[in-house]
Structure formats: structure tokens, C-alpha cells
């Protein structure tokens, strides 16, 4: 070993580095499926396809809760008063400024569709409760208004709006 020339050293070093590098690539490639399997499987993805919801049975002032991809979606048929309240608030005073118009579909202003998961830590807020006649989260006291916007409490953001569209005046497609 003491008598090996420097040229041999380089050749050996190259072999060692190459073997090590190939081993590292192999290990990384082997880890990929082990991690990837944790993602939603094909049946979960297929079950998360868009759903259609009939709005006809929901009277003014009422709301329903439907599930899409395992998440509760509140669909609220707001009263005139509730819509006016939501629109009377100066947007700049809100923790997460957003107009009510931006949170509903034009021409369907009475319909509020929000994902009913508190943006604080994921509890389900109760509809028609709290100081703003919107939603109240019992876990840590976050209060949302009639537009589902955060008004009070620890939650940082408004209730998110799921992707949806009106298929007809009385039917929406979520997803």
C-alpha cells in the first residue's frame, strides 16, 4: 500500500467515488416509492371527483352541510339582512381583507359556499352562531361573519371557498 503510485491512487479514488455515487443514487431511487405510497391512492383520488348539489330544498336563512373530499362544505342561503351586513363592513378593518362580492358568484349573491374548517387548527365552526351571525368555532373561539370572513379570535384567515360553479340556478357543482 505504501508503494502505490499517485496515478493508481487517482484511479482507485475514482472507482470508490463512482461506486459510492451509484450507491447513493440507488438508495435515493429506492426511497421514492416508499414515500410516494403515502400520497392519496387512485381510489381516493377517484372518489374526490366533483359532486353536484341541488340548492332547491334550501330555504332562505337555512344552510346545509355536504362533504366533498372528506371536508364539510357549508352551503348557506343568506337572508337579505345577512348579505347587507356582510357588505356594510369596511374591508380595510378586516384581519383578512376581502369583499363579500369576491366570495360569492355574481348573480347568486345570496349563496355562500365555504369549506367549514376553521383556519386556526381545523375544527368545524358552528353555523348561525357568534356575534356576527356567521360561524363560531367552539374550539378556540374564532368568530366568522355572514361571508365566512374571520372577525375575531385566533384564526388568521377567512373560511376558504372551494372550487365550484353554478350548473343552473338551483344546482352547483363542487370541485
Amino acid at each position: 500500500m505504501t508503494t502505490t503510485s499517485s496515478a493508481e491512487h487517482t484511479r482507485r479514488d475514482f472507482l470508490f467515488v463512482a461506486t459510492g455515487a451509484v450507491a447513493a443514487v440507488g438508495a435515493a431511487a429506492a426511497v421514492w416509492p416508499l414515500i410516494s405510497q403515502m400520497n392519496p391512492d387512485a381510489s381516493t383520488i377517484a372518489a374526490g371527483a366533483p359532486i353536484e348539489v341541488d340548492l332547491a330544498p334550501i330555504a332562505e336563512g337555512q344552510d346545509i352541510k355536504v362533504f366533498w373530499r372528506g371536508k364539510p362544505i357549508y352551503i348557506m342561503n343568506r337572508t337579505k339582512k345577512q348579505v347587507e351586513e356582510a357588505r356594510a363592513v369596511p374591508v380595510s378593518s378586516l384581519p383578512d381583507p376581502q369583499t363579500d362580492q369576491a366570495r360569492v358568484k355574481e348573480g347568486h349573491d345570496q349563496w355562500l359556499v365555504v369549506i367549514g374548517i376553521c383556519t386556526h387548527l381545523g375544527c368545524i365552526p358552528i353555523a348561525h352562531e357568534g356575534a356576527y351571525d356567521g360561524f363560531f368555532c367552539p374550539c378556540h373561539g374564532s368568530v366568522y361573519d355572514t361571508s365566512g370572513r374571520i372577525r375575531q379570535g385566533p384564526a388568521p384567515l377567512n373560511l376558504p371557498i372551494p372550487p365550484y360553479a353554478f350548473v343552473s340556478d338551483t344546482k352547483i357543482k363542487i370541485g
Partner: peptide, 28 residues
């Protein structure tokens, strides 16, 4: 074991859904 269901009515199909639906489930 993360994907398997140990129940007589579901075990067989849960193994098949591992093979068919889980990412790289057939490989594992």
C-alpha cells in the same frame, strides 16, 4: 400495514387495492 385491513370481509380486497391503487403498491 398502513394500507391493509385485518378483517375477514375486507382483507382480501384491501390487499388487492394495495396492488392496484396505492402508488407503487404492487412493488411493495
Amino acid at each position: 400495514a398502513m394500507h391493509y385491513t385485518p378483517h375477514v370481509d375486507m382483507a382480501f380486497n384491501s390487499v388487492e387495492s394495495i396492488v392496484r391503487d396505492v402508488n407503487y403498491g404492487w412493488l411493495l
